[in-house]
Each structure stands twice: as structure tokens, then as C-alpha cells.
Simulated assay, not measured.
Amino acid sequence: MSARPYRLGYNTNGFAHHRLEDALAIIAELGYRAVALTPDANHLPPDRTSAADLRAVRSLLERLDLAVVVETGARYVLDPRRKHRPTLLERDPADRARRLDFLVRCAEIASELGGDCVSFWSGIPAPGVSRDEAWSWLVDGVAEVCRRVEPLGVRPAFEPEPGMLAESLADWAALRDAVSSPALGLVLDVGHVPCTESITAGDAIRRHGAELRTLHLDDSRGGVHEHLQIGEGELDWPDIARALREVGFTGVAAFELSRHSHAAPDAARVAIERFLAADRH
């Protein structure tokens, strides 16, 4: 089997109970070549992380030979009482601005760490907000993200998320066309595909390969969005691995198993072992 052109990574949201430096060391020890770093209350909190902190983490990443992408899905980093809020879809412009500033700050973190990609999603419309209103705010917000992030040398990437305003690949295409920014790319979570699409995860990769900035790896069963361990759902992992090679993907494909943080080292080991076994088929 020839060397894969992309790097396998693991999301730090799956190491929620570890210090960041310990999580990075374990991820590297297990054979990963990248990390999807989620700034959170316990890992580079965006409002309390200094330039010196970022230099130290960048130095560690370089010593461990870990490429980095930055994720923005921390549950309570902006509001300790409301999961994933505020979003770009809030009625109050000040709340929308808070999310926008957070996304730009995460892009700054990515740049300081030597990364070139920051990913984000739409969120759920606030109560009383119509879909048309929410969609208009999303388009405007994503366009502003692109405008403010591109000068940093960081590529913004959008993730369709089941249950959110933009949840499907059709929603992604509509948003891409409405924003019309060459900077904007796609984040595809293979575990989301059975929840929102009529095609396989492998075929979703093939169809959107040219747009992929980064990839999330997790399993699913019965069209339910629950981020299962690799091999514990219904996804065809050998086909996913083949599809990544076929499209020439060169980014970071990171396992996203936040619900496995209680057993993070074992979960990360099992994930990479099972994926590599599938890739040999």
C-alpha cells in the first residue's frame, strides 16, 4: 500500500480530560501525524491564551511532527449555560458579532500554530427566528468570516451538521453559491452522511473531493448522529479509504470522538488501528 497523501489526526475534543500537552504527546505516540485542535475551556481558551502560550504549543507540535487544523465546535466556550451559543444566527447583532469574533480568533490561533484551516458550522436558529432570516444572517456571517480570515493565510471551511440550519450537502452547495468566495471550502464528516444524504460516505468524498479542506472520521448506525467508534456502525471504511486516495485528498482526516474522552488513549488507539486495517483492504 502506497503512502497516503493526507495526514490522519485526532480531535482534542476527544481528550477533554487531558492537559493539552499530554493529549498531543499521546496522539503522536499512537502514530497520528496531525491534530484537530478545538480551543475550549481546558485547551487554549481563546480569551485567555497568550502569544507565548501559542508559541509553546507550536514548538511542541513541530517537535511531535503534528500538522494542525483548528476546529470551533466547543460546546460552552462562549456561554457556560447555552450549548454552542451564540451562533451566527442570533437575532441580536451583538451576539452574532461575538460568534464572528470567536471564529476569527480561532483562525488567528490556527495561523500562530502554523495551521492553514479553521472549520465552523451554522448552528441552530434562535427561538422566533425564521429560516429565511437565519439563512440571510448565515450568508452574511460566512462571507464576513471569509473576508476577515483569508488575510491570515488560513482557509475557512464549513461543516454541514445534522440538526443545524445548514445540515446537508445540498445546504452546503447553496451556501457556497450564495457566499461566492473562492476561500471557502468544505468540511465533510463521514458519520453525518447517512443522517442527511442518500449516497454513501465514500461517494460523498468522490463528489466533493475538490472542495474538501478537512475531513472528520466517525461511524454511525441507522442514520443516527452519535459519533460511534470506527467499526461500531455501518460505514464502509475500506471504501472511505479508497475514496480519499481516488480524489487525491491531501489535508487532515481527523477522528472526532468527543464522547469517548473518558477513555481517550484507548479510543484513539482503536480508531487508528481500525482505519489502517480498513485502508489495507
Rank of each mutant, 00 (worst) to 15 (best):
M1H: 03
S2H: 11
S2N: 14
R4L: 10
R7H: 07
N13C: 15
G14D: 00
A16D: 11
A16H: 10
H18I: 02
R19I: 01
L20T: 06
L20I: 04
I26L: 10
I27F: 00
A28M: 02
A28I: 00
A28Q: 01
E29P: 00
E29G: 11
L30D: 00
L30K: 06
R33P: 00
V35R: 04
T38D: 02
L44T: 02
P45I: 08
P46T: 05
D47C: 04
R48Q: 13
A52N: 08
D53S: 10
D53R: 07
L54V: 12
R55V: 04
A56H: 01
A56T: 02
L60Q: 15
E62F: 00
A67W: 00
A67R: 14
T72P: 02
R75K: 13
R75G: 05
Y76C: 09
D79H: 13
P80N: 11
P80W: 05
K83A: 15
R85P: 00
T87K: 07
T87H: 03
L89G: 03
E90D: 09
E90K: 02
P93Q: 07
A94C: 05
R98Q: 13
R98Y: 01
R99F: 04
L100A: 13
D101V: 12
R105Q: 12
R105V: 08
R105A: 14
E108Y: 04
G114K: 08
G115R: 06
D116K: 12
C117A: 13
C117K: 07
V118F: 04
V118G: 08
S122F: 07
S122D: 06
S122I: 11
I124T: 13
I124V: 15
G128H: 07
S130V: 09
R131E: 14
D132I: 12
S136R: 15
D140A: 15
D140E: 15
G141A: 08
V142L: 10
C146S: 12
R147H: 14
R148W: 03
P151Q: 09
L152E: 03
E159L: 03
P162M: 11
P162N: 10
M164S: 09
A170I: 04
W172K: 11
W172A: 14
A173D: 14
A174Q: 14
D177I: 01
A178W: 07
S180K: 12
S181C: 11
D189M: 02
V193Y: 00
C195E: 00
E197D: 05
E197C: 10
S198E: 08
I199D: 00
I199T: 09
I199H: 03
T200A: 03
T200Y: 01
I205K: 09
R206D: 01
R206C: 04
G209W: 04
R213I: 08
R213C: 13
T214E: 14
L217S: 06
R221E: 13
H225C: 14
H225R: 13
E226K: 05
H227G: 09
H227W: 03
L228F: 07
G231M: 11
G233H: 10
E234W: 09
D239Y: 02
R242G: 11
R242W: 06
A243R: 12
R245H: 14
G248M: 12
F249K: 13
V252I: 15
F255M: 10
E256H: 03
L257P: 06
H260Y: 15
A263M: 08
D266H: 13
D266C: 06
D266W: 10
A271F: 00
E273Q: 12
F275S: 02
A278S: 14
A278D: 01
D279T: 04
